[in-house]
């Protein structure tokens, strides 16, 4: 009886009405996921800086807007702060020889203090009625258009950049650093460059998120890396399933953004089902673990001896 009452209490219309907002937030996360894609997939560098730079992007944007600076300029400055964060991680790793994960964590932790200083507290609100914001909860239809334009432009820029001599040097660095050195490329420089670029995107995305939700919060970056990874991986798995061998780099980038949207849609669904929000992070982590495991397990069953034996037995029978 209780179950029936629960299902009756769910309102399909609410799910539908939440959809546009979820799309906007999904694209914002998708842009952050593009940053994660650069480090995690292209550079092969597990960069945990992003939790810090995402929140920094939000904090800097809101504080600057409150100080009377136009939102686009505030967002641009926030993006540069993200760049600096990425560079710090890059220097910690390349010049001081700190392992990648630890270098990212150190920068991330430092940003916690920096963001508290910037926000002068744990959070700051920015009122869309008083300031002209680029995206906002209160104006979802125009926000969707804006975000679609941003996503299209960023995907195109990244597609172009990673097709240049420099961009392909970054891709090669993530693939085989030994070979890249033998081709006369400074791999340290390429790593720093990629980390800077990646965290630009992350801070940019954080700046948009804070405007959309109308506030910046010290905790808004918590778990950002996992969400970014979730988007990257969901995008890859789904892209692979739909496009398969016709996949190219442009479509791959589009699917990373789509991964963010799908992720956020699933979260919306979970919230609509009124699952306890405390469990959201556990849920996200499980999604990432599952999707990370799929390609591995697939390869394993395709190559496994047990499987080969079974196949052989069937043939003989």
């Amino acid at each position: 009886m209780e179950l029936i009452a629960y299902f009756l209490s769910l309102k399909p219309l609410n799910l539908l009405s939440a959809l546009p907002g979820n799309i906007v937030q999904g694209i914002i996360w998708g842009i952050m996921a593009l940053g994660v894609f650069i480090t995690f997939r292209l550079l092969n560098f597990a960069d945990l800086t992003v939790d810090g730079t995402f929140a920094a992007g939000g904090a800097v944007t809101v504080v600057l807007i409150l100080a009377g600076i136009p939102a686009p300029i505030a967002l641009a400055i926030a993006t540069i702060v993200g760049l600096l964060g990425g560079l710090v991680t890059g220097f910690l790793h390349t010049i001081l020889g700190i392992p990648d994960i630890l270098a990212g964590i150190l920068t991330q932790i430092s940003f916690w203090s920096i963001n508290l200083l910037v926000l002068d507290g744990a959070n700051r609100a920015v009122n869309v009625d008083k300031y002209h914001l680029i995206v906002s909860l209160r104006n979802i239809s125009s926000s969707i258009v804006t975000m679609l334009v941003f996503a299209a432009v960023l995907v195109s820029i990244l597609y172009w950049y990673f097709g240049t001599e420099q961009g392909s040097a970054i891709r090669a660095t993530g693939n085989n650093p030994q070979m890249v050195k033998a081709q006369g490329i400074n791999i340290d420089f390429m790593k720093v460059l990629a980390l800077g670029l990646s965290n630009c995107l992350v801070a940019f995305s954080g700046g948009l998120m804070s405007q959309f939700q109308g506030f910046a919060d010290i905790k808004m970056g918590q778990g950002a890396i996992v969400i970014g990874l979730a988007a990257v991986i969901i995008g890859e798995v789904i892209g692979d399933a739909l496009i398969g061998k016709y996949m190219n780099f442009y479509i791959k980038l589009v699917f990373v953004v789509l991964g963010g949207v799908i992720y956020y849609f699933v979260i919306g669904l979970v919230m609509w089902l009124r699952m306890p929000t405390d469990l959201l992070k556990l849920f996200t982590a499980s999604v990432v673990a599952i999707f990370l495991a799929i390609p591995y397990l697939k390869a394993k069953t395709n190559n496994s001896f047990v499987f080969a034996n079974k196949g052989g037995a069937q043939k003989n029978a």
Binding site: T164, Q166, G167, S168, A169, V180, Q183, G184, I185
Partner: peptide, 19 residues
């Protein structure tokens, strides 16, 4: 071809020209 393009530019500065 991407590998060859990397090698053709051995020792050169990596610019923003198409690879």
């Amino acid at each position: 071809e991407e590998n060859l393009a990397l090698a053709l530019r051995r020792g050169d500065r990596r610019t923003l020209r198409w690879y």
